[in-house]
Design a protein around this nucleic acid. Structure first.
Length: 286
DNA sequence: TCCTAGCCTTTACC
DNA sequence: AGGTAAAGGCTAG
């Protein structure tokens, strides 16, 4: 498949938004929904197996107008540098259920640990699928995780998150909850629906909204983004808020909402895209 | 109603 | 080896 739009596969898969892709012999292998696929990029050429072109276009959001998004969020020299550095980085349109569990697991965990938890859950509870001579496991469905015991989930290194995942799976099954239907709702309404799941606060909800439900105005604020705000945008916030952010490690909901509202006002409807560039740039500057 | 402190598990990295 | 930070959320008060 020949690319006619800017895209960088490595940046998009390495920037911390996805947890179940691995690179082997120059190919990226990933499990998405009920598919196992592999993909690699050589310049403008995208090669893949396991899915059709429509799926690849949808999953990697190749229809997003990256040039236009860049123009919208390019508001200062700092983000300008991040945009240049990671030109071609795209948000990935993840499968919502997998995304939701992934970010519940992200609570107080670094990325390698999250990848480890999801891998263990998949191996223990997901359907095995052979592809390219290798064994993969689909991510377990809500039904499968609802049937899992908290003990079983704790065996996957989830710790206190085991209860959250179990309860969330149970709610999905009990209410026949269709996460994809949240796509039709406005940002704030979809967010309040997600907040009803145990283990989902503002941060996790924003991640699910941004990475799987097309809410590009969602602006997840974690410790890294908080650093970006303090180090590069503090002059745009009230000195009172800045003082609070400096003196405490974790954000209160009120502070979190203030930062998100600032970001949406400053970067606009694609604030979430700005977040991803800033997040990845901050993490790789050291 | 809103806010805060204390607690929750485990891993990676220093 | 020991400590700390890690894409935070829940609950009692």
């Amino acid at each position: 498949m020949r690319l006619t739009v800017p895209f960088d596969l490595d940046f998009s898969l390495c920037c911390g938004q996805v947890f179940r892709w691995q690179k082997l012999d120059g190919w990226w292998y990933g499990v998405v929904g009920d598919k196992v696929l592999k993909i690699r990029q050589c310049g403008c050429e995208l090669e893949f197996e396991g899915a059709d072109e429509g799926f690849v276009r949808y999953y990697f959001r190749l229809d997003d107008d990256l040039a236009e998004i860049g123009r919208c969020v390019d508001r200062d020299s700092y983000i300008h540098t991040a945009l240049k550095q990671y030109a071609g980085l795209r948000l990935v349109r993840q499968e919502p259920w997998n995304c939701l569990v992934g970010f519940i697991c992200s609570i107080q965990k670094n990325i390698p640990a999250i990848e480890n938890m999801l891998q263990q859950m998949s191996s223990l509870f997901g359907v095995e699928r052979e592809f390219d001579g290798k064994a993969f496991h689909l991510f377990p469905t809500a039904e499968q995780l609802a049937l899992a015991s908290e003990i079983g989930l704790r065996k996957c290194s989830l710790g206190f998150r085991a209860k959250y995942v179990k309860a969330t799976a149970q709610k999905i099954v009990d209410e026949n909850f269709d996460l994809n239907s949240l796509r039709q709702l406005p940002y704030l309404e979809a967010r309040s629906k997600l907040l009803e799941f145990m283990g989902v606060g503002l941060k996790v909800a924003d991640c699910v909204l941004l990475f799987s439900l097309d809410k590009t105005e969602a602006f997840p604020v974690d410790v890294w983004v908080k650093r970006v705000i303090l180090n590069h945008y503090s002059d745009k916030l009230s000195s009172e808020l800045v003082k609070r952010l400096q003196s405490r490690q974790t954000l209160t909901n009120k502070e979190y909402l203030k930062i998100g509202d600032f970001a949406r006002g400053y970067f606009g409807q694609y604030a979430g895209y700005a977040q991803e560039y800033l997040y990845h740039y901050e993490r790789t500057q050291r």
